[in-house]
């Protein structure tokens, strides 16, 4: 595949809190995956280059990857999450960057 044909990616860091507490890794991954899937559908996710990159279950902060032109859609999707399994939930986008290294700094 030519480099120009590849997805141009962006990394979005987020903070995920349910009732003010961070979720364990597996639940956080399930929460983010199921929310993105219900928001965009299978077809939408396919051209999203979506990946749950990392998550720290102590701080509740993590990183997701998405396609460059879909960053705003991803942020809007995150902002629309207000409830998870009947509890108040907040998935707040914090910063957007082209590399994980710069996002961590």
């Amino acid at each position: 595949m030519k480099p120009t044909q590849r997805f141009k990616q962006r990394y979005v860091s987020f903070s995920l809190l349910v009732k003010g507490m961070p979720l364990p890794y597996s639940e956080a991954k399930d929460c983010v995956h199921s929310h993105f899937l219900s928001f965009f559908g299978e077809s939408g996710i396919s051209d999203f280059a979506f990946k749950f990159v990392k998550y720290d279950d102590k701080s509740g902060r993590g990183i997701v990857r998405c396609e460059r032109s879909k960053v705003d859609d991803a942020i809007f999707c995150m902002a629309c999450l207000s409830e998870w399994k009947g509890d108040k939930c907040r998935l707040e986008p914090l910063a957007t960057c082209g590399s994980i290294k710069r996002l961590k700094a």
Partner: peptide, 16 residues
């Protein structure tokens, strides 16, 4: 308080 949204989220709402 849980329903407040930051500036970046409001901008992405406008794009949406």
């Amino acid at each position: 308080a849980g329903n407040t949204r930051n500036a970046r989220e409001l901008r992405s709402f406008a794009y949406a």
